[in-house]
């Protein structure tokens, strides 16, 4: 009997397949289907502090626009009883999700201000989340701000949240640090229970006809996994916190690679959006089949087995790697 269990954020999970935060989990039926299809845990869709603030400010602005100016139209809209603008709707959804499934539900929070982080994090905890994933998406554009200062922002936010919470906290970060291992260590020291690698930033595109910047968010592709594998492999063993891979996990083989690099769980969304929630079962089956064929006994057995410290050539994860990959690729192409 192959043991697929893993440990993540202090929880024992039945397998390493976790659904990452996405609009898919806005629907309770979907969450049930995720459990049925084999997900070991679900990171709930994110509560966006900025979104709440923007919606609140927008509503306020346009309910007020043009009012108390002209005697015949002192207002333009009826006054509704409520607008569900705070996190209440999200928290209620979390509560219901907890009741609907037996797998752990991890709350996810996208925040901007320290006050907001703590306040919302506590509410997520109180609503019954098994753990919290903080999605820090600070994008520095100020040329005066140093890398160290940016990292301090992350560490301070995390410390503040950790100090006020009893449930485990994972931090989802981007790859854009001048020294990722150092940044990871600082977060580790600030109390992160897990690091989730990596956030996929919204990357604006250009509309050349209209000379406009347009929002753009495309689904992840399997090749994105490689960046994650690289850094999980490098970080494995260097920090206390658990590691999780998110972005580019599409197949059972991707999960295996993630585990071997050193991740405790592999998270998916794009593959589910593309293939349906039932794809989780396929991935799980692939996972089992490969392990059977290759006579692996457990997931935990392979975790970190291909990490930088565990491979024969640790320098494979360093800069020289780049040249080699490119040349091997051109060689392959040339043989066709």
């Amino acid at each position: 009997m192959i043991d697929l269990t893993t440990k993540y954020l202090g929880m024992k999970l039945k397998n390493p397949l976790v659904v990452s935060a996405s609009p898919l989990s806005e629907d309770l039926g979907n969450i049930r289907r995720m459990e049925d299809s084999g997900a070991a845990a679900v990171v709930l869709t994110s509560l966006f502090e900025e979104q709440i603030h923007v919606e609140s400010a927008t509503l306020d602005k346009f309910l007020q626009q043009g009012t108390e100016s002209f005697a015949e139209s002192l207002t333009y809209f009826p006054d509704l009883t409520g607008y569900n603008l705070g996190p209440a709707g999200y928290l209620e959804h979390l509560r219901r999700a907890k009741q609907a499934v037996s797998i752990p539900i991890i709350g996810s929070l996208n925040g901007g201000s320290t006050g907001g982080w703590i306040d919302y994090a506590k509410k997520i905890q109180d609503a019954g989340a098994d753990a919290l994933e903080l999605n820090i998406y600070f994008i520095p554009t100020d040329a005066e701000m140093s890398g160290a200062e940016v990292e301090q922002v992350y560490a301070d936010l995390l410390s503040a949240v950790k100090a006020s919470l009893r449930i485990p906290v994972a931090v989802k970060i981007g790859a854009y640090f001048s020294s990722l291992p150092n940044a990871a260590r600082r977060l580790d020291q600030a109390g992160a229970d897990a690091l989730v690698l990596f956030n996929r930033f919204y990357q604006p595109d250009f509309d050349l006809e209209n000379l406009e910047v347009v929002p753009n968010l495309i689904l992840s592709t399997p090749h994105e996994l490689l960046l994650r594998l690289n850094w999980v492999a490098v970080l494995y063993g260097k920090i206390r916190a658990d590691l999780a891979v998110t972005g580019g996990v599409h197949t059972g083989l991707d999960v295996l690679k993630s585990m071997m690099a050193g991740a405790r769980v592999a998270m998916m969304t794009s593959a589910l959006l593309k293939n349906g929630i039932g794809h989780l079962a396929t991935v799980r089956a692939e996972l089992l089949k490969w392990m059977e064929e290759h006579e692996y006994e457990s997931i935990q057995q392979m975790q970190g087995s291909m990490s930088q410290r565990a491979v024969a050539d640790p320098s494979a994860f360093q800069r020289a790697n780049y040249v080699k990959v490119l040349s091997s690729y051109s060689l392959k192409a040339g043989t066709r």
Binding site: I52, E55, S56, A57, D60, L80, G82, Y83, L85, G86
Partner: peptide, 9 residues
Amino acid sequence: TYGKRGEKV
């Protein structure tokens, strides 16, 4: 007056 429109307001 503004409570319904959100804490930030």
